[in-house]
Simulated scan of single mutants.
Amino acid sequence: MKEIVASLSELDKVVTYLENTLPLHAIVFLRGDLAAGKTTLTQAIAKSKGIDSEVTSPTFSLQQCYLSEKGENLYHYDLYRLDHESFMQMGLFEEFEKEGWHMVEWGSDTLKAFLEGVGYNVATIDIEPHNNARNYRIHV
């Protein structure tokens, strides 16, 4: 586990660590309370990948896809109101086959265990407020 404390202006420390640690195809579970900074971290990752699109939380669409000119695609999911069974029935599982990083907000432990069980690279980032910054605990 790697722990990084970073303010908003220091998010590049977290992004650089992820770029140096994660494979080109990975699923990352983002955990934290409302307004912890899950989407903000995803925005910083998108920027580092050369994605110019506005990155917003996929709260109502469940998934946003961002395609980079560098070929480093980013997929962003918000599964807040979706349990594991519903996720599977909707066919969203197949989306994880697409090359790139898949950032999952509010993913269940059941989904994470399933993905690991079928051989996906799954990381978890726990985000908590820390003074005027955030504490990022990264489990790869």
Rank of each mutant, 00 (worst) to 15 (best):
L34H: 03
H84P: 02
A35G: 10
L24D: 15
D109I: 05
D52M: 15
L62V: 15
M1W: 01
A44W: 08
A35R: 05
S57C: 13
S53R: 12
E54S: 14
R134V: 00
L34Y: 01
F93W: 04
M90T: 08
L30N: 00
E128H: 03
R31M: 07
N73A: 09
G71Y: 07
M88L: 13
S7R: 11
I127S: 03
V118M: 13
V28I: 15
M88Y: 06
K49L: 12
L34C: 08
D83G: 06
D12K: 15
G71T: 06
G71N: 06
S86E: 15
F96H: 09
L34A: 05
D12Y: 12
G100D: 04
E116I: 11
A26F: 07
M88S: 06
I138Y: 01
Q64N: 14
L115C: 08
V5N: 05
A113W: 05
K112L: 08
E10V: 00
F93D: 05
H84D: 12
F93S: 06
E128S: 08
L34Q: 05
F96D: 03
P58V: 10
G37W: 00
H84E: 14
A133Q: 09
H139R: 14
S86H: 13
T16P: 07
G32V: 01
S53V: 04
P129Y: 05
P58W: 03
E116A: 08
G107D: 04
H76S: 06
L67A: 10
S61D: 10
F60A: 11
E94R: 03
P23Q: 07
L11K: 02
L22A: 12
S53C: 10
F96G: 02
D78W: 02
I45S: 04
Q64A: 14
I27D: 02
L30K: 01
Q63L: 15
E69L: 13
S108L: 07
